[in-house]
Amino acid sequence: MSAAPPAPGLDQTQLVEVAAADLPRLVSLFDPDHPNLAFVHAVIDGAIPGRAWAHFHNDAPVSCLVATTAPFCIAGGAMTPAFFTEAKTLLAGHGEVQLVYPPGPGTGAWAKQAGFTAGRRLHFTRTHFGFITPMPAVPDDYAVVRIDAETFSGLDSPMARSIFGTSAQYAQHTAGFALVKDGQVAADAHGVIGGGLIELGVHTHPDHRRKGLALMALALVSRWGTEQGLRSVITCHADKTPSISMARKLGLTEELSYPIAKAIC
């Protein structure tokens, strides 16, 4: 993943909101190895809520900003100083932002000038497609359930709600599994699906942590994804040791480290 060089005369980016019918045109700005690519496709497909803005030159998209309703926002195409400034303005009111952008000469400095701070995330994926994640044994006092609209409405997982939107939208577009004990969801894992990928995320209730439940829930979603022909992906902050450990235990391999620009907008 690297930033495309700006075309002549494009140093003053002008991002305009992209209509739903034109969203598929933005796919050309993202390489197959672009981090969080499942999120990009999911927004384009209408599987998760989000918005997109793009700069067009001769009616072709040159750069774009895809924003989910979660912190995750993704940039693609040619980066310029003006792009980061405009992105910061467009994301005003968004709250926490983690902007993934294609690295290139000067991009980190441009992000800083626009008011972002630097961060770094890791991208893990499955190198052998036919690999099936081993399923850890589920403790006898926990039950495995497929998350439906009703279960989703009661989850103690702010990140899942911010990513997937309504319970109806979740039930239609997403796969998730939970471990339940005494009627309480102890751990829930989900997958953002798009572009042949399933990007995994998990949340464990504070009362049920340090029992390996997150790994069990993730394994259920990853195995489901493999059965559907999807390649599992996990991304996490570079210093998040538990997430790195779980990704490796799931049989995923670190593919790349990539920069992000962070801000409260």
Score class of each variant (00 low, 15 high):
residue 120 R to W: 04
residue 56 F to V: 08
residue 22 D to E: 13
residue 123 H to W: 09
residue 72 F to A: 10
residue 107 T to Y: 11
residue 74 I to K: 01
residue 87 A to E: 02
residue 36 N to G: 08
residue 70 A to P: 14
residue 109 A to W: 03
residue 113 Q to P: 14
residue 105 P to A: 09
residue 63 S to C: 13
residue 102 P to Y: 09
residue 34 H to G: 05
residue 116 F to A: 07
residue 123 H to A: 15
residue 16 V to Q: 09
residue 104 G to H: 06
residue 121 R to H: 08
residue 48 I to F: 01
residue 24 P to N: 09
residue 141 D to Q: 02
residue 40 V to T: 00
residue 107 T to D: 09
residue 77 G to D: 01
residue 55 H to T: 02
residue 24 P to Q: 06
residue 47 A to E: 04
residue 118 A to M: 09
residue 111 A to H: 13
residue 125 T to C: 15
residue 62 V to P: 05
residue 20 A to I: 02
residue 18 V to R: 12
residue 18 V to N: 01
residue 84 F to P: 10
residue 33 D to N: 07
residue 71 P to H: 02
residue 45 D to M: 08
residue 138 V to K: 01
residue 130 G to T: 01
residue 76 G to I: 03
residue 96 E to Q: 12
residue 21 A to H: 08
residue 54 A to F: 12
residue 96 E to Y: 04
residue 107 T to A: 11
residue 28 S to Q: 15
residue 52 A to Y: 09
residue 46 G to S: 10
residue 50 G to F: 04
residue 108 G to S: 12
residue 98 Q to H: 13
residue 26 L to R: 14
residue 119 G to M: 05
residue 92 A to I: 01
residue 95 G to I: 01
residue 104 G to W: 04
residue 80 T to G: 03
residue 31 D to R: 12
residue 31 D to Q: 14
residue 118 A to Q: 11
residue 133 T to K: 12
residue 76 G to T: 00
residue 76 G to A: 03
residue 57 H to P: 02
residue 51 R to W: 02
residue 45 D to L: 04
residue 27 V to I: 08
residue 54 A to D: 09
residue 143 A to Y: 02
residue 74 I to Y: 03
residue 19 A to W: 06
residue 45 D to I: 12
residue 110 W to Y: 04
residue 60 A to S: 12
residue 133 T to G: 02
residue 128 H to S: 09
residue 38 A to K: 10
residue 133 T to A: 08
residue 80 T to C: 04
residue 116 F to M: 10
residue 48 I to E: 00
residue 114 A to H: 08
residue 70 A to H: 15
residue 30 F to E: 14
residue 90 L to E: 15
residue 30 F to H: 14
residue 118 A to V: 09
residue 91 L to G: 02
residue 48 I to S: 02
residue 89 T to N: 15
residue 24 P to R: 11
residue 35 P to D: 14
residue 33 D to C: 11
residue 34 H to C: 14
residue 26 L to K: 11
residue 120 R to C: 12
residue 82 A to D: 07
residue 51 R to P: 00
residue 39 F to G: 00
residue 74 I to V: 12
residue 91 L to Y: 01
residue 98 Q to S: 07
residue 53 W to A: 15
residue 23 L to H: 01
residue 126 R to G: 08
residue 49 P to Q: 13
residue 142 Y to Q: 02
residue 18 V to T: 15
residue 131 F to H: 04
residue 104 G to T: 02
residue 70 A to S: 10
residue 131 F to S: 11
residue 118 A to S: 14
residue 63 S to T: 13
residue 89 T to K: 13
residue 129 F to Q: 01
residue 50 G to S: 06
residue 142 Y to I: 14
residue 66 V to Q: 13
residue 100 V to S: 11
residue 111 A to G: 10
residue 71 P to L: 00
residue 19 A to L: 15
residue 54 A to G: 08
residue 98 Q to I: 00
residue 63 S to L: 03
residue 94 H to M: 15
residue 133 T to I: 00
residue 20 A to D: 04
residue 107 T to K: 10
residue 119 G to N: 12
residue 126 R to H: 07
residue 49 P to M: 07
residue 112 K to S: 10
residue 81 P to I: 00
residue 130 G to R: 07
residue 46 G to A: 06
